[in-house]
Design a protein around this nucleic acid. Structure first.
Length: 595
RNA sequence: GGGGACGUGGUGUAGCCUGGUCUAACACACCGGCCUGUCAAGCCGGAGAUCGCGAGUUCAAAUCUCGUCGUCCCCGCCA
């Protein structure tokens, strides 16, 4: 094959040579007596010069339009004095065209191929092939490829084996909703697309592969968000004969390498570890953003005998009064405070109480300002001032309610205020942490039963295992989540390798013997044939890229993402299928859903 | 399932709150012309939108109301 050169890679070493280039007309600057074309390919642009002495191709060049695809033959030369363009890699040279062939014309574009122009995302997704020509998007996709390569090399160098696991697999609807695929050969039965290769990688450990990894697509039929797509990519790995520290350590090493590749900077390690309970009571979430303070403070003890009914009734029903303090400098108007109260209500809360604190007034009562100050005694306010360490100019938000809910609402408020104050946007740090000591189970009000906090294959902590039958909600798990700047990057655990223990967990979760057998019989059985102790983790690759690149949405690092309704605007998937296809699968569609 | 924002020539916006002066403005793209050193080229000229769709209020609707569709953000959901 003849050697091809990329437009964006032509440099001084080519000067004097005749070369052939292929690419897209990025822009045409017609000066009448000379025409410049920026010819673009995936590596960048190079300037082609058309001069009137080559009359035939000069006339052709006058008619060129943006995004026409052309083949150009020409001589590379040094640009004349004073016409060097330092902004582009090829800025010192240009190509004097000797031959021109128009390979394909382009219609007038729905939007310009430029990073300078704003285009609605709807249009970008419809014409994704044009969107991907924009340098910013092209760079994201190229970097994605480079990182995938880096990740692969990393695991290969550490002795991991890459194994592909099935996409057509068994539905285990314990977690997210499954995407289902009807089976034509077994009418009335369905495959599910995997939410993760969880069970297969555990089985691979039992098979003795020892160290497994896979860069794998996962599928979840849940509502979308800026950081959630119905199909997304995980870096999935699992190791045998390891403890939590081993997984955390190799994960930190991997993330540090990726981080270094992108930013050229080193991450400080090991990452901070934060207890789950502390994370909830201090930040109201298990994915805290540590780039800013405003930690939650429990002030319940101050208001034990308060006359303020909102607080006293919550306390008497075993609830808590929690507070966050926003320091001086953020002066909120009454309207802004009202907006925050509405925000809390939109998050499912009853409301917020608030106070402003001014140091200048003489009495404690006068130092506080709000519509509720009159309900509190001087003693209560004095204690509050001390407990919250108030100096002046602060605003305090209170949320009363059950422990977790109250903390959660304040955690959401904390995050919203940090955004509104531009603390997040102005902080380019990456604050990694591990959240550990999760409970193994939690009580689901919705389902009215005990459910796994992670998944039912997570091992309990040895020292809490004896509580499994007596007080399961007190059992702690050997799970660990990795979090950066308020985003859950991934999670993993040491798994259960003992079949009796696995069976016991299923029992606690309320599965009948029959359900255990039909849904997870193969796992229990596999565990009975000599399962090594093992554990692993999966990292959200799209999220990892988006956060390191500062993208607002993972859609910007995915070549062909879907809209919030799960639609691909380019192909218009999902779509209606023919009656023949439906019939072959033994399905019937409710008529009102059709078309 | 719920809350919120947005929808105006090909594209991105202004106008909308406070209906008439909107015969809808601006920038880029597009078409024609000029121009031998530009590189987000420049200058001159031109064409192009009944304002997502449907109903309503009104003498009068881009503007107000209701419904609907689409996109985005969030809550729920995401073992």
């Amino acid at each position: 094959m003849q050697q091809r050169f990329y437009c964006g890679k032509i440099d001084k070493t080519f000067i004097g040579k005749e070369i052939i280039l292929y690419g897209w007309v990025h822009s045409r600057r017609d000066h009448g007596g000379v025409i410049f074309i920026d010819l673009r390919d995936r590596e960048g642009v190079v300037q082609i010069v058309f001069q009137p002495d080559k009359k035939e191709i000069f006339t052709m060049a006058e008619k060129l339009h943006n995004e026409d695809v052309i083949k150009v033959k020409g001589i590379v030369r040094k640009r004349p004095e004073g016409t060097v363009n330092p902004k582009i890699f090829t800025g010192e040279i240009e190509i004097v065209a000797t031959e021109l062939e128009i390979l394909n014309k382009s219609k007038i574009l729905p939007f310009e191929i430029s990073d300078y122009v704003n285009v609605s995302e709807e249009l970008r997704l419809k014409y994704r092939y044009l969107d991907l020509r924009r340098p910013e998007m092209l760079n994201n996709i190229k970097l994605r490829h480079e990182l995938l390569t880096l990740v692969r090399k990393f695991f290969v160098n550490h002795g991991f084996l890459e194994v592909e696991t099935p996409f057509l697999t068994k539905s285990t609807p314990e977690g997210a909703r499954d995407f289902l695929v009807p089976s034509r050969l077994n009418l009335g039965t369905f495959y599910a697309l995997p939410q993760s290769p969880q069970l297969f990688k555990q089985i691979l450990m039992i098979a003795g592969l020892d160290k497994y990894f896979q860069i794998v697509r996962c599928f979840r039929d849940e509502d979308l968000r800026a950081d959630r797509q119905p199909e997304f990519t995980q870096i999935d790995y699992e190791m045998s004969f390891v403890e939590e520290e081993d997984i955390m350590s190799i994960t930190e090493e991997l993330i540090a390498e990726i981080f270094h590749y992108i930013t050229g900077k080193h991450l400080s390690r090991p990452f901070v570890k934060l207890d789950y309970e502390k994370s909830i009571s201090q930040y109201g979430t298990d994915t805290p953003d540590l780039r800013y303070g405003f930690e939650i403070v429990n002030v319940t003890s101050i208001f034990q005998t308060t006359q303020f009914k909102v607080f006293s009734s919550v306390i008497s029903s075993n609830g808590e009064i929690n507070a966050i303090v926003i320091p001086e400098g953020a002066s909120f108007s009454r309207q802004q405070i009202e907006d925050y109260i509405k925000f809390i209500q939109s998050c499912g809360g009853e409301g917020l109480a608030w106070m402003k604190f001014y140091s200048k007034a003489t009495s404690v009562t006068q130092q506080f300002e709000s519509n509720i100050v009159k309900f509190f005694t001087e003693k209560e306010l004095a204690q509050l001032k001390e407990k919250l360490n108030l100096h002046g100019g602060e605003i305090i938000f209170f949320c009363a309610g059950e422990h977790k809910k109250s903390c959660k609402l304040l955690g959401m408020l904390r995050q919203k205020i940090a955004r509104d104050l531009n603390i997040v946007a102005n902080n380019k740090e990456f604050k990694f942490l591990w959240v550990i000591n999760f409970p193994l189970f939690e009580f689901s009000d919705e389902e009215n039963k005990i459910v796994s906090v992670h998944h039912p294959f997570t091992a309990p902590k040895k020292e809490t295992e004896h509580l499994l039958n007596t007080d399961p909600l007190k059992v702690r798990s050997r799970a660990y989540d990795i979090v950066v700047n308020g985003v859950e990057l991934g999670g993993g655990s040491i798994r259960i390798s003992n079949p009796q223990l696995q069976r016991q967990i299923f029992n606690i979760l309320g599965l009948t013997e029959n359900e255990i057998k039909t849904k997870f019989g193969f796992l229990i059985e596999a565990l009975e044939y000599g399962a090594p102790p093992h554990g692993g983790i999966a990292l959200g690759f799209d999220r990892l890229m988006a956060i390191f690149l500062g993208c607002d949405s993972i859609r910007d690092v995915i070549a062909f993402p879907k809209t919030q309704k799960g639609v691909c605007l380019m192909t218009n998937a999902p779509s209606v299928v023919s009656k023949k296809q439906i019939d072959e699968l033994g399905l019937t569609i409710k008529t009102e859903l059709k078309g």
